[in-house]
Design a protein around this nucleic acid. Structure first.
Length: 498
RNA sequence: CGCGGGGUAGUAGCAAUGGCAGCUCGCCAGGCCCAUAACCUGGAGGUUGCAGGUUCGAAUCCUGCCCCCGCAACCA
């Protein structure tokens, strides 16, 4: 049995779940479910990133300890993932003791390999904020919050010899030993590695107290990004001894947003090369949302809250819509109107209406015996082919298009055959036509399963099949003519029109 | 010349990386009455940002220009 280890980034707990994170996580969940459906041994890791100055500061503002703040916000994430039916195998938190142990082990290992050295970090520091700013963030050299001149400050810290990995990484990308998708993102990293000089990375901080201590120097804590990236190891119970390494390693795919591309395609593999372990098989960076052409941001006040969307449309519908709006990997524009359009067009008028149409017709008889139907069989086969290729290449929107295609085919078939007339004059033919349609619906139940698991169950239930279907392997389920249909149930409207 | 992406029918949204330019929504006309005012058929509507080039053939490849967006080490 093939294993399939998939990860999302861990989210920073200083705020509630953001649409971007929900997007990554939904995509990952669809993949996880798809690979499970194919019979693979899936391990799906998600989590929260909880250390760093921002958390400490926020906790102080709210008169809590950092740990209390983290607990509170991590719970909100868990709740959100529950709402969206995220089928994760583990929720790792960077404040988990196992994680801290892994970070300590890994850092020691890299330190022992002489890839970490002591140095001095110089940065622009705002005394009032008690934090460093990048030159870009400053306005006329002043802190944007306090309008005070930032001062150049130095502190002792440890550096990771990132510069040593510039050439090896470049080579590995060119030889496709290190796979970054989609192509645009690969080009971006390649361009960066070719044109810019990679500098050693400050991986510890003296002033940040809320973090994991540097194992050999308690006056320092580990830089949050280094801490965070290692969750992909701690999440599968990493062990420093080679014989006790978890079987899940390496990840088969790691999904990220394009904003954290460099962390995952430069720093992360450099750390793994330092450890001498295999790199993830693939990093896939998806695009961003714009809202009616503009960047989604707090200052513009155009933030779309995923949990509110789930209330309006239902979590399952949202899972479908968000992945069908534009190709994964690219940027895409969204708006409230678009969600309504999608929902009504594809879910209410499409899948939902078809479901009800067929079941209302099916209620006219009790039994629909199994039989062969070449045209239907061919169509369903070609839909499955397109669907599978699409999902294997992370083309979610294209997989969903193939589902819509099957619904369209079935709707046309009803209009052509006019089964409500056949019922009055040719019962045998009527039963055949309905069998085909019910079988079409059964396949739709399978096809939507990774995207809308609950709705998929509802469809099976209304076909009177229920658990019978779920126990079948995919190879069997996707074949024509599994069973006769009896005692179908109309049930509730799948997607009420909005 | 910092890096990367993009400009396709209605002031709407997106497919299509060399082979007759398609889909969603909207609009117009018809059909059906099983269904959630739904579904089906037909129609109008594009010199694919501009200008050159390669090719039997270009939205797609090359060159130049115009415009938009993201990134530039800690905000998905």
């Amino acid at each position: 049995m093939n294993k399939f280890y998939i990860t999302t980034p861990i989210y920073y707990v200083n705020a509630k779940p953001h649409l971007g994170g929900v997007y990554t996580t939904l995509a990952a969940d669809v993949l996880a479910r798809w690979h499970r459906m194919k019979g693979e041994k899936v391990f799906f890791l998600i989590g929260t990133d909880e250390h760093g100055e921002k958390i400490a500061k926020k906790a102080e503002e709210q008169k809590m300890t950092p740990q209390q703040l983290c607990d509170q916000n991590a719970a909100r994430y868990e709740q959100a993932w529950d709402t969206f039916s995220i089928s994760y195998d583990r929720f790792i938190r960077t404040t988990d003791p196992e994680h801290e142990k892994t970070v300590t082990d890994v850092m020691k290992d890299i330190y022992n390999k002489k890839l970490i050295y002591k140095g001095t970090y110089h940065g622009l520091y705002c005394v009032d904020c008690e934090r460093y700013y990048t030159a870009k963030e400053l306005v006329d050299g002043c802190c944007p919050l306090h309008q005070k001149k930032a001062v150049v400050l130095s502190e002792k810290c440890y550096f990771f010899k990132l510069s040593a990995f510039q050439r090896p990484l470049l080579k590995m990308i060119l030889k496709n030993e290190w796979i970054i998708e989609p192509e645009e993102r690969r080009n971006e990293v390649l361009g960066f590695l070719k044109n810019e000089k990679l500098e050693d990375l400050a991986i510890s901080r003296e002033k940040v107290k809320w973090g994991i201590p540097v194992p050999w120097d308690n006056s320092q804590t580990i830089y949050v990004w280094i801490d965070a990236l290692l969750n992909y190891l701690s999440g599968i119970n990493w062990h420093p001894n080679e014989e006790k390494r978890p079987e899940q390693w390496p990840p088969d795919i790691q999904l990220i947003g394009k904003d954290i591309l460099k962390f995952h395609t430069i720093i992360w593999p450099a750390m793994l090369l330092s450890l001498g372990i295999p790199l993830p098989k693939k990093i896939y960076a998806h695009g961003f949302f714009t809202v009616e052409g503009q960047k989604m941001s707090k200052s513009l006040g155009n933030i779309i809250d995923p949990e509110e969307l789930a209330v309006t449309f239902g979590a399952e519908a949202l899972r479908w819509m968000i992945l069908s709006l534009f190709p994964f990997g690219q940027d895409g524009d969204i708006s409230q109107t678009k969600f309504y359009d999608k929902y009504n067009a594809e879910l209410s008028n499409g899948l939902g209406n078809f479901h009800r149409r067929v079941l209302t017709l099916a209620a006219k008889k009790d039994i629909y015996p199994l039989h062969e139907a070449d045209d239907f069989k061919r169509k369903i086969k070609s839909v499955w082919e397109k669907y599978e290729t699409s999902l294997d290449h992370l083309k979610f929107e294209s997989a969903l298009t193939s589902i819509n295609d099957l619904i369209g085919f079935c709707d046309k078939y009803i209009n052509q055959k006019e089964p409500w007339k056949l019922f009055k004059k040719d019962i045998a033919e009527y039963q055949k036509v309905l069998y085909n349609l019910l079988e079409g619906l059964r396949h739709l139940g399978w096809l939507i399963q990774p995207f809308m698991p609950e709705k998929s169950n509802q469809i099976f239930a209304s076909l009177g099949l229920d658990n019978l279907e779920k126990e079948k392997p995919l190879t069997k389920g996707k074949q024509w003519g599994q069973t006769e249909f009896k005692k179908t149930i109309i049930g509730e409207i799948l997607f009420p029109r909005l």
